[in-house]
């Protein structure tokens, strides 16, 4: 049933990448428990605007949990307390009247803060550019049914391909590692026959790109898997490791 609650928010405010930020306190009153977390911030922002103050900047777009734009660390957890949920799909019924809620941006050296909760995740695009694709031009493909792919293989590839590139795995990891993100793409393409010819080159290039971007290494903390809104499994990291070792020792690709 719908009810309303009052919350105390402590929100990270920072005007730009090179200025100091701090937590500011706001009161979010009469919040319907049917609202999403972002709708709750909308309400706070409307009031800030009318009061002549700067509203809280945050990235968001689809509000259906698929575009990967949104994300903040809520009470210490990326995308908040609900498992398998993006911030836009987190509803206020999971909070109680009188709660204090701390909202911070993704924290990683590789994700500089743009403003408040909005961060620059451009390095994730760079990693895909390093090799997260199959080299095929439009126009030359054979019939789609020419290569049968066993259903369980297609399903596994789809599990990996569900990654929305939000960066929560990085925010969750004590090493700020992007390994879950990298492994999801490497794994998807390595599983499918179409992706095999470039598998070795892809694994090496994408890992090197992640290293260069300043992401840390994986030390099997499994925080990424716990916080991933699409519940992507770390078995994909294991597959990435296998692909990487195969590529490093067993192929001619350097």
């Amino acid at each position: 049933m719908t009810k309303t609650i009052n919350l105390t928010l402590k929100v990270w405010r920072q005007k730009g990448p090179h200025v100091k930020g701090k937590l500011e306190t706001y009161h979010a009153n009469n919040i319907s428990t049917d609202m999403s977390f972002l709708e709750m911030i909308d309400v706070v922002n409307e009031q800030l605007t009318l009061d002549g103050k700067d509203p809280i900047a945050f990235d968001h777009d689809c509000r259906e949990g698929i575009c990967g734009s949104c994300g903040a660390v809520v009470n210490g957890r990326p995308h908040g307390p609900e498992k398998g949920t993006t911030l836009c799909q987190l509803h206020m019924r999971h909070f109680s009247d009188g709660d204090t809620v701390v909202v911070e941006p993704w924290r990683s050296r590789a994700f500089p803060i743009i403003r408040d909760l909005a961060v620059d995740r451009g390095v994730l695009d760079k990693i895909i550019q390093a090799g997260g694709y199959i080299s095929v031009n439009a126009g030359g493909a054979q019939d789609a049914n020419a290569i049968p792919i066993p259903q369980e293989v297609a399903d596994k590839a789809m599990d990996a391909a569900a990654c929305i590139g939000c960066g929560a795995c990085v925010a969750a990891c004590p090493n700020a590692s992007a390994m879950l993100f990298v492994s999801a793409k490497v794994s998807q393409l390595a599983l499918l026959p179409q992706g095999k010819p470039e598998a070795a080159r892809r694994a090496i290039a994408m890992l090197c790109s992640a290293d260069k971007a300043g992401f840390g290494n994986c030390s099997n903390e499994r925080e990424c898997e716990a916080e991933c809104p699409k519940e992507i499994s770390i078995t994909h990291i294991a597959r990435l490791n296998r692909e990487f070792f195969k590529a490093s020792f067993g192929s001619s690709v350097q």
Binding site: A138, A141, A154, Q188, Q194
Partner: peptide, 22 residues
């Protein structure tokens, strides 16, 4: 029809039947 061919070649994991066809 060309779209489906191209998308499969790109590695899009479309749903498949047990026999491996789309």
């Amino acid at each position: 029809n060309n779209i489906i061919d191209h998308c499969v070649a790109q590695g899009i994991p479309f749903a498949r039947e047990y026999g491996g066809l789309l």
